[in-house]
C-alpha cells in the first residue's frame, strides 16, 4: 500500500512535469527566439533568490528522486506478483474480461516503463547534452530540435516512445487516482475519461512539434 501510494504521488509529479515540458515544446511555433528565450529563462527562473540554473537543478533532483521511487515501487510490486503466481502455476489459457486496448495498456505498464527510461536517457543525450546529434550539433535548442526532427528515424523513435508514454499514462493516471482513494462508483466513468483525456492531450501535444518539423511547418 505504501508502495502504491508512493507510485501514485511520484507518478503525479512526473505527469505535472510532462505538462510543463509539453508547453515548452509547443513554443517551437513561436519561432527560434521564443523557444531559445524560454530555454534560457528556465535557467534564470527564481533569480536572484536562487543561483543561475538553481531552479533547474532543484527540478532535476526532484524528478530523479521521483523516477527512482517510482521504479523501486514498481519492481517491488512486480516481484510480489511473480511470487503470488509463481512459474509452474500459470494458466494454460488466459483471456481478459476487459477490452483489448485497456488490457494492452495494463499489461505493458512494467516493460513500457523500462522502455520509457531507456528513451529518456537517449532523449537527454540528444537534446539536452547534445552528445548524440543527428542532423548536426548546435548551441541553440531550437536548432537541435529542427536538425534532429528533420530526420525520419528520429521522429519515428520519438513517436514510438511518446505512444508508449501515452499508454502508460492512460492506465497510470486512472490507477493513481484510484490508489489515492478518489474512485467512487458514481465517479468511475469520469475518472476513466479524465485519464484518457490527459493521456491523449499529452500524447498529441508531444507529437505535434516533431511532425511539424518533419513536414516543414517549422524550419
Amino acid at each position: 500500500m505504501a508502495l502504491k501510494s508512493a507510485m501514485a504521488v511520484t507518478g503525479a509529479i512526473l505527469v505535472l512535469f510532462l505538462i510543463a515540458h509539453m508547453y515548452g515544446n509547443l513554443l517551437v511555433f513561436g519561432g527560434r527566439e521564443a523557444f531559445d528565450d524560454y530555454s534560457h529563462h528556465l535557467r534564470e527562473l527564481g533569480e536572484p533568490m536562487l543561483p543561475h540554473g538553481g531552479f533547474l537543478w532543484i527540478m532535476r533532483v526532484v524528478l530523479l528522486a521521483s523516477v527512482l521511487v517510482h521504479a523501486y515501487a514498481a519492481v517491488a510490486l512486480w516481484r510480489r506478483a511473480a511470487r503470488a503466481r509463481p512459474a509452474g502455476q500459470r494458466y494454460a489459457v488466459r483471456r481478459s474480461a476487459q477490452s483489448p486496448a485497456r488490457r494492452y495498456a495494463t499489461q505493458t505498464m512494467r516493460w513500457g516503463g523500462i522502455i520509457i527510461v531507456l528513451f529518456v536517457v537517449y532523449h537527454l543525450l540528444h537534446l539536452t547534452t547534445n552528445h548524440i546529434a543527428p542532423g548536426g550539433a548546435s548551441n541553440s535548442p531550437y536548432e537541435r530540435v529542427v536538425n534532429g526532427f528533420s530526420i525520419w528515424w528520429v521522429v519515428l523513435s520519438y513517436t514510438v516512445a511518446v505512444l508508449v508514454i501515452g499508454y502508460h499514462l492512460w492506465h497510470g493516471i486512472w490507477s493513481a487516482l484510484a490508489t489515492l482513494g478518489a474512485n467512487r462508483a458514481s465517479r468511475e466513468r469520469a475518472l476513466r475519461t479524465i485519464s484518457t483525456a490527459i493521456a491523449t492531450i499529452i500524447t498529441v501535444g508531444f507529437l505535434i512539434p516533431p511532425f511539424s518539423v518533419l513536414f516543414g511547418l517549422v524550419s
Binding site: L3, K4, A76, L77, R80, R83, A84, A97, Q98, R102
Partner: peptide, 10 residues
C-alpha cells in the same frame, strides 16, 4: 502472499 493491486480491474 497474495500479490499487490495495480487497479487493473479484471
Amino acid at each position: 502472499e497474495f500479490g499487490g493491486c495495480t487497479n487493473i480491474g479484471e
